[in-house]
């Protein structure tokens, strides 16, 4: 607190935001982890620099910069950015994770169709017709466009039943 009263500028928030502290802590932790594991990799071999040398330097930079950042924050806490729309983040991340998890099982067309319907109909509140058309184009349409147009094959279902009907 004493350093703050000496150097603090007026109109700056008084405390370091918890999210900033967490960020600094995370970077410092990654830096230290890299430092330790790059020593295990070997900094130097008889032939010259070892596989751990470059990561070691980067870990040191990361750890050192975290400390500098912490000191800067203690002296003059930065204003935190506005929060995010948590509902949006959770909806997008969870739906993407589910999509990625089932894509090899259900095939690209079916899983992407459901994914798009979720985002258009359930989250976007769009009309049935526009949701269905867009989802079909984005799933079945994209599958064939990539397969035949660009020679890039997207996954088909692992279930024989779905597979035989072309999904």
């Amino acid at each position: 607190m004493t350093t703050e009263s000496v150097t603090a500028k007026p109109a700056s928030p008084a405390r370091v935001a918890p999210s900033v502290l967490a960020g600094i802590g995370a970077f410092a932790a990654v830096g230290v982890y890299v430092l330790v594991s790059s020593i295990e990799l070997g900094l130097w071999t008889s032939l010259g620099p070892g596989p751990g040398l470059f990561p070691f330097a980067m870990g040191a930079v990361l750890a050192a910069m975290s400390v500098v950042w912490l000191l800067q924050e203690l002296r003059r806490p930065s204003e935190t950015a506005e929060g995010v729309d948590r509902g949006l983040v959770i909806a997008v991340v969870v739906s993407l994770a589910i999509l990625a998890a089932v894509m090899d099982l259900l095939g690209f067309q079916l899983s992407m169709f459901l994914f798009l319907m979720y985002h258009l109909k359930l989250r976007g509140g769009r009309a049935w017709r526009s949701s269905l058309i867009t989802s079909l184009a984005g799933s079945v349409g994209a599958f064939y466009a990539f397969n035949f147009g660009l020679n890039v094959s997207l996954p088909v279902s692992a279930f024989p039943l779905l597979n035989t009907i072309g999904l």
């Binding site: 997008v92 993407l96 994770a97 999509l99 990625a100 998890a101 894509m103 090899d104 992407m112 994914f115 798009l116 985002h119 258009l120 989250r123 976007g124 509140g125 769009r126 526009s130 867009t134 984005g138 994209a142 990539f146 890039v152 094959s153 997207l154 996954p155």
Partner: peptide
């Protein structure tokens, strides 16, 4: 909402097709 859905679609295809693996989507 349509734009967001389509951009997500392209991101998934983009990440997947590099190695043809859902690992890259994660």
């Amino acid at each position: 909402s349509i734009l967001t859905a389509l951009i997500l679609l392209f991101m998934v295809i983009g990440a997947y097709t590099i190695n043809f693996s859902v690992f890259d989507v994660f």
